[in-house]
């Protein structure tokens, strides 16, 4: 994935450590202009670390982070960027309007206060102190703070956490409209449903590595498959070639893990090739499991 000309943010072979913990391992990642990109993965996958590095909040241990063709820590980059992070608590004694007014002062051409309030659906609580807001309203206030500089690029880290279903749908529709207006958006989420609803491109992360990326359709297809585990004497290469099998991994104990889009067909082929295959276990693989199985065998190359 070389950085294209339309890329607004890039990580080049980035490894990042917190002490002895490796949060990202040799990640190359490119954010294209005008796209909604979702970083999808379980807790600890490295989603937030990517956001932090691209927003210039930390320097990569190894490799390079680029934002708008320059240094993510430069003021010029930050003027064009809006960031929504997971903040445990915002100063609670200031009102929604006060918080927005202050953040707006940091930018050369901020949106008018009323526009930001309307955009985030906060008009009715504009004069309420942050500490008196509901969880969803607090989350929308953080969104408002990300929007007040009228940024062309938005980083949204777990934006819908704490929102009820209705709020979430409304928020999704706002994100779609922002994307339609030409803004580039990077969001992180635990939920395939959310990534599918919003993103033009999904990047799946696990344990600090990009394990898959592609359109929502491609990713969903991979996640919809089943996982077959069994003991077999077939080699990994032979297993991968079986009809219906997308990926195969063999562990040291002689157990194979197969990811299959069509598990019936894969199983018939498996038994035809190895009558002695035993301990067979089939289960539907959730997205996380589907990719966990693959990473465990260290086959973390891009799939799409």
């Amino acid at each position: 994935m070389p950085a294209s000309q339309t890329s607004v943010a890039t990580l080049n072979n980035v490894t990042h450590r917190y002490g002895s913990i490796e949060a990202l391992s040799d990640v190359t990642f490119d954010l294209e202009a005008g796209q909604v990109t979702a970083l999808l993965g379980p807790n600890g996958a490295g989603k937030t670390t990517i956001v932090r590095l691209l927003a210039g909040l930390a320097r990569p241990t190894k490799g390079r982070a680029v934002l708008f063709g320059g240094d993510p820590q430069s003021v010029e980059s930050r003027r064009r960027l809006g960031v929504m992070l997971q903040v445990a608590r915002v100063p609670e004694t200031l009102t929604v309007s006060e918080h927005i007014t202050l953040f707006s002062s940091y930018y050369p051409s901020p949106l008018p206060l009323q526009t930001v309030l309307r955009l985030a659906g906060l008009e009715s609580v504009a004069d309420r102190r942050y500490g008196k807001l509901s969880g969803g309203q607090q989350q929308r206030t953080l969104f408002a703070l990300a929007m007040c500089g009228n940024p062309g690029l938005l980083f949204l880290d777990e934006p819908t956490v704490g929102m009820d279903v209705e709020s979430r749908r409304q928020f999704w529709s706002t994100i779609r409209e922002l994307a339609a207006s030409g803004r580039s958006i990077l969001l992180t989420t635990h939920y395939l449903e959310e990534a599918d609803a919003l993103a033009t491109r999904i990047v799946v992360l696990n344990r600090g590595r990009v394990i898959a990326e592609g359109t929502p359709a491609t990713i969903k297809q991979q996640a919809a498959g089943r996982q077959i585990r069994c003991r077999t004497h077939l080699t990994e290469a032979a297993l991968a070639l079986l009809p219906g099998v997308q990926r195969a991994a063999l562990d040291a104990g002689g157990y194979a893990t197969l990811m299959a889009a069509d598990s019936d067909r894969a199983l018939r082929a498996l038994l035809a090739a190895d009558e002695s295959a035993s301990d067979i276990e089939i289960r539907s693989a959730g997205l996380e499991e589907a990719f966990l199985a693959l990473t465990a065998a260290d086959q973390a190359s891009a799939v799409a």
């Binding site: 064009r80 901020p110 409209e177």
Partner: peptide
């Protein structure tokens, strides 16, 4: 969000303004 989402028609284009905000 209880209110209808904003139509982006009313939203100005993203800002690329590199003037300094008043320090």
């Amino acid at each position: 969000m209880s209110t209808a989402a904003l139509s982006t028609a009313t939203l100005p284009a993203p800002s690329a303004d590199q003037a300094h905000a008043s320090i």
